[in-house]
Amino acid sequence: MSTEIKFNLNGNDIQVTVKDHWTLLYLLREVMGLTGTKEGCGSGECGACTVIVDGQAVNSCLYLAVELNGRCLITIEGLAGPDGTLHTLQQKFVEHGGIQCGFCSPGMIMSSKALLDENPTPTLDDIKHALAGNLCRCTGYTQIFESIQAAIDTGTEDVEVVAWKNET
């Protein structure tokens, strides 16, 4: 069965017809060509596919596309400004070695953003708790924590990001 859904994607209202059984990850990668969101396991155990729906980090590999109806979705493609200006988190991940092979990075950055949107001054333990579902095999996590802490010190809202909070 197909359903027409309306949702907000990275600040743009869009309308798309989806099959009921499509996951959000499938919709993004295979239908809309937004391949920034990665599939690392397909079963909610690695977090590479993390996106933000209505302000909350979710695994897009387990989230039905049809459930997006009426919601706001932010993917990694929505973080950098139209002129290429990086979101503070992206900038800090780049500058502090938070990225090696990069496969976990989009999901890692989305989880970090969801955390900072909810709690702008998390402790190291808060960060670890929030990122526990994002596996990384390259970095040993330390430089990821440092990247996030650097973003906290800078403040995250100095880049214009279309966030769900701004929507009515």
Partner: peptide, 12 residues
């Protein structure tokens, strides 16, 4: 509940 799955799982 704080240790069930990940944040992403617990959100859903």
């Amino acid at each position: 509940v704080q240790h069930i799955g990940s944040t992403q799982i617990r959100n859903v």
